[in-house]
Amino acid sequence: MSVWDELTGQSEAIAVFRDAAGDVGGAMTHSWLITGPPGSGRSNLAYAFASALLCRDGGCGHCRDCRQVAARTHPDLAVLSTDRVIISIEEVRTLVASSQFSPSVSRYRVMVIEDADRMVERTSNVLLKALEEPPERTVWILCAPSEADLLPTIRSRVRSVRLRVPSTDDVAALLERRDGVTPETAVRAAREAQSHIGMAHRLATNAEARARRDETLSVALGIQSVPQAVMAAARLMELAKDDALAITAERDTEERESTLRSLGVEPGQAVPAGLRSQVKQLEDDQKRRATRSLRDGIDRILVDLLSLYRDVLLQQLDARLEPINAAIQSQIDALAGRTEPADTLAVMDSIADARRRIAQNVAPALALEAMLITVALPGTAPRKALP
């Protein structure tokens, strides 16, 4: 099985990168930008391309080079990803410096930045200099949701490949093949994740994640008054925190244990004063990651709520489209029957506003309360003027 077999729904993009890796028709270039919506498989495609460049057989998937790329330990692969809100300028400077090295065992030296959209302008300018004059055998692969997330000067120096949202059937087939779940579980997870590959995997394999999503929708459907809306906002915050903790807790523990072992500190032993700064740096990084994880968890809740009211609107308009939340169709029918399409659109607008406000650092609890009050009081949300 080659590295390309782990991808789904991106046949056009795969063809571009396979040609480039084989240098078919001069398709190879020194810098690439992979764009696409969250969950479309940007980073998966980036590492498949990296394997194809570093493997003697074009990404066979089982040789030492491919295994090292999968483990992110290949000597000619450098990776920059972040669990924080932004990528720091020092991280990019370090990566740029390492990009000047010649390949040690393969044809190329490959530099991957998974979250290129999380660089501020000053940091992006550091990367720009590396893209302008790269070493002959260095290849940059950047990943971002869209070209607009990067500076125009960077966009002009990369070849952009855009991914599409994979179909529900494609994602379900991947879950069955890779994770061994039943067809029913795979289809439901793919549908409820809205073809987000990573979230579909989590819903298909994690019962707690499924339970949290079910409760999110149940909380919203039970709102009948403003006090209930306020209480619901608090409960959604708790669910987001639980979800963030589930994602980060195990990793944090493993990182701390690994760091202490590398510093020669035995389990249960006090950290010597001379080593405390390194442990403190790790703890600070983990706190920043927890902040990012919580923000992502809140956004997932809002996306799930948006899917709920999308289904309600489709029912109200008698649209013949497949529902996302088919498992609670009876509750969707009941809500659609007692509200008007204009009210549903107002709620959907309020959810979109909450996502924007939270991204702009408005307190998440306040943004959720304001959004859920619209749910409690249909018809009271202010209408926006048409542009």
Rank of each mutant, 00 (worst) to 15 (best):
L7Q: 06
E12G: 02
I14F: 00
A15H: 08
A21N: 03
M28G: 05
T29S: 11
P37Y: 06
P38V: 00
A48D: 00
G58A: 09
G59E: 01
C66Y: 02
A71E: 14
T73M: 10
P75G: 09
V79N: 01
R84F: 02
V85M: 10
I86W: 06
I86Y: 05
I86E: 12
T94H: 11
Y108S: 04
V110M: 07
I113Q: 06
T123Q: 10
S124Q: 15
V126T: 15
L127H: 04
A130R: 13
D149W: 03
P152A: 13
V158K: 01
R159H: 13
S160R: 09
R162E: 07
T168F: 03
A173E: 14
E176K: 14
E176T: 07
E184Q: 14
A193N: 09
Q194F: 02
R202P: 00
R202T: 14
A204P: 04
A207W: 05
A209H: 04
A211G: 09
A220L: 12
I223L: 08
Q224V: 05
V226D: 13
A232V: 07
L239K: 09
R256W: 03
R256V: 11
L263G: 08
L263W: 03
P267N: 03
Q269V: 05
A270P: 12
A273Q: 07
Q278F: 00
V279I: 15
T291R: 15
R292A: 14
D299R: 15
Y309C: 04
L317T: 02
R320C: 04
L321Q: 07
S330G: 10
D333P: 00
A334K: 08
L335C: 01
T339Y: 03
T339E: 13
T344P: 00
A346I: 03
V347K: 15
A352Q: 13
R357P: 00
I358G: 00
Q360P: 01
A365M: 10
A376P: 02
L377R: 15
P378C: 08
K384G: 10
P387W: 12
